[in-house]
Design a binder for these strands. Structure first.
Length: 661
DNA sequence: TTAACCGCATACG
DNA sequence: CGGAGCGTATGCGGTTAA
């Protein structure tokens, strides 16, 4: 923004911040990042003259592969409403017009209008600093009902240009305008102009648009002539490379503050073009997927296909309050949050297996503590019981925030078969589309008024997908066409990593396996659902395999180092008697023999380590409860004395084994 | 060996 | 007067149980 005195803004922000606990925490974080940068610099310096040409070769190969996937056949448009929340407030209260205003409060600003931005007031800035920068600043409390209403109006417009558009939050959307341009034989420039005009007529709000051959670039373009402007990048490789050449990396979605600093301070990369110049270093320092993303950015590549609809993975609720160490008060807040989360989950018919407690101490340090369970839970009582255990382990503590997150939902694909999960056939209720569907060990109504995302969840889990005319409906196709406006937030980084199609692949796998389950029972099961999706499944496998190889290598190296102690190979005399204690176990008792061997192993280790002071204590903790307690004490131990931790599993094992004997 | 899990950091609207 | 949010998703590095 022109006319912003950046130095003054910085000075004010610094003056208001320094000495605060928040500021001290920021400094700690800053030191951590600096350390990280130093480490990576050292890593760079350690690259030998033989390393670099090898990484250069890898990088060149990757660039060729990525380039070969370039698709210039599509035209994407990214729409971004200008200062959306603030604009809506002004629209409904014309007295605010022309005055500096922000949506939010003294503690945090969500959106500032352009008048306020002239003073340096920004989104994600605390209100009291905004007020200091601009004493006339007016605050409007957020009102999401209003914003949703206007968002719906804009979406009605978007539908006319792309019935499958992808919404990203309330104020942004990606539209594939390839077909509209073709059908109406007009340029993307005209489409963008017309769309913006139409949005203004329908809502009275202005927006900005960017047009480019992929979503990543379209998003960058919509920012160029903001507010109330547009920028069109032609579907031409040379144009793209020129555009990219001077583009600061921070403009790319997925590259935030920290990544920008790492790339800049470690490798001297400031523009997208420099990603290619330093490609060998990128491949040497970063994981395959990160390096691929960075190289793609350098080439100006991005996703061009329609992203898959993704189901929710977690749901959370958190609250900030004035810091307290009063335990009654903390438990009360925890109970409130558990109730909020539970009610939110019930609204979507969800229940989850993993609960994560989030804490922010009065010094702004953030901690998370998680626990997973055998069965899915969603009642506020169950959530509170487990959450309290997690919190109890952290006491005493002074907190300014408590949060709870549930994940691993009942309808999620899991690797091993959930024993509580019913077979598909138990869900099939032939011919009755109104029947309630029972999923896992909790029931949820198959409501008709659900969002597309929900119907997706249900279809993946429950799968008796009969329409009223009793024909089989493709769940993937169905939810996309039914609710194109569902809010699918995809960062460019994720898109570039092909994560959405991975998830689609996972769902696909489950879908297909369940379909197989029911084929003998359901003669009407449709086979057309698989044909086109087969390819996606394959690409899912291809991607994962390469990923797993990397992980696998890292882990096996690690475990080679750590697992130096191996269980003794017990000799079974006459293939029957334990050579160590004479216990008799026939060869067919494989499991029992393994446990027996483990017992001797544990015994052996125990002898070795009897001098350890803390062992008795740990053992008592172990015997007292199951996994949960074991994990907690291990965590404490790890903090206090990291060296000890490697002994703990053995102790635990010993206790377990000795119970068997 | 490996999938599942945990804790932390990063990013975005 | 001091005062720095909420919800969702992902990657990375690590541990653990089976």
């Amino acid at each position: 923004m022109d006319g912003v005195d950046k130095e003054k803004v910085q000075r004010v922000v610094y003056e208001m911040s320094k000495g605060s606990k928040y500021f001290e925490n920021e400094e700690r974080k800053e030191a951590f990042i600096k350390q990280k940068i130093e480490n990576m610099r050292a890593q760079c310096a350690n690259l030998t003259a033989t390393d670099l040409p090898q990484y250069q070769m890898i990088a060149d190969k990757r660039i060729l592969e990525l380039e070969s996937g370039r698709d210039l056949s599509r035209t994407w448009l990214h729409v971004d409403m200008d200062a959306f929340y603030a604009a809506v407030e002004t629209l409904e209260n014309p007295l605010l017009k022309g005055k500096p205003m922000a949506v939010g409060g003294m503690s945090m600003i969500s959106t500032a209008n352009y008048e306020a931005r002239k003073y340096g007031v920004r989104a994600a800035m605390p209100g009291f600093i905004g007020k200091k920068l601009c004493p006339d600043l007016i605050f409007a409390p957020p009102d999401f009902k209003k914003y949703t209403h206007y968002s719906d109006l804009t979406r009605k417009v978007f539908l006319k240009y792309d019935p499958n558009f992808v919404a990203s939050g309330l104020d942004e959307a990606y539209l594939d305008i390839t077909e509209v341009c073709k059908e109406r034989a007009i340029s993307s420039i005209e489409i963008a102009e017309e769309l913006r005009k139409c949005v203004y007529e329908e809502t009275g709000l202005t927006c900005s648009a960017g047009v480019a051959p992929n979503r990543l670039l379209a998003k960058v373009c919509s920012d160029i002539n903001k507010p109330n402007g547009q920028f069109v990048l032609p579907n031409d490789r040379m144009h793209i490379l020129i555009f990219i050449s001077s583009l600061p990396i921070r403009k790319i979605g997925g590259i935030g503050n920290v990544t920008e600093r790492i790339l800049s301070d470690v490798l001297g990369i400031n523009t997208c073009e420099e990603m290619l110049q330093k490609c060998a270093f990128l491949c040497a320092l970063f994981s395959r997927s990160s390096a691929d993303f960075f190289l793609s950015v350098g080439l100006g590549l991005g996703k061009t296909d329609a992203p898959e609809v993704r189901s929710r993975k977690s749901m959370s609720s958190e609250r900030t309050f004035s810091a307290t160490a009063n335990e009654d008060s903390l438990y009360q807040k925890l109970a409130d949050i558990a109730a909020t989360l539970s009610s939110d989950m019930e609204k979507e018919g969800l229940s989850g297996r993993t609960l994560t407690l989030k804490l922010k101490t009065d010094s702004f340090e953030v901690r998370t503590r998680a626990a997973s369970f055998q069965s899915h839970i969603n009642s506020s009582e169950d959530i509170l019981i487990h959450a309290s255990k997690l919190l109890k382990a952290e006491l005493p503590i002074s907190l300014r925030l408590i949060g709870l997150r549930m994940s691993h939902f009942n309808d999620e694909k899991i690797g091993t078969v959930d024993p509580t999960q019913k077979k598909l056939t138990s869900f099939i209720i032939p011919g009755d589309s109104s029947a309630k569907l029972t999923c896992s060990n909790n029931s949820m109504p198959a409501s008709s008024g659900n969002s597309g995302r929900d119907s997706m969840d249900h279809s993946v889990t429950c799968l008796p997908i009969y329409a009223h005319n009793n024909t089989f409906v493709d769940p993937f196709h169905d939810c996309e066409s039914e609710n194109p406006s569902n809010s699918n937030q995809l960062s460019d980084f994720e898109q570039m990593h092909d994560i959405s199609s991975n998830i689609a692949g996972e769902m696909e796998l489950e879908f297909r396996s369940k379909q197989n389950d029911c084929q003998s029972e359901v003669a009407t099961a449709d086979t057309t659902a698989s044909g086109t999706q087969m390819a996606k499944t394959k690409s899912f496998f291809g991607y994962s395999e390469t990923n797993f190889v990397d992980k696998h290598n890292k882990r096996s190296n690690f475990s080679d180092e750590v697992n130096k102690k191996q269980p003794p190979q017990i000799l079974w005399e006459d293939d029957y008697k334990c050579a160590l204690c004479g216990a008799e176990l026939p060869p067919s008792f494989i499991e029992e023999r393994r446990e027996h061997s483990d017992y001797h192993f544990a015994e052996m280790l125990q002898k070795e380590e009897t001098e350890l002071n803390e062992r008795d204590l740990i053992q008592r903790q172990r015997t007292s409860n199951v996994v949960q307690n074991a994990k907690e004490s291990k965590r404490k131990k790890r903090k206090n004395n990291p060296k000890e931790s490697s002994h703990l599993p053995i102790d635990m094992f010993f206790v377990k084994s000795s119970q068997n004997f």
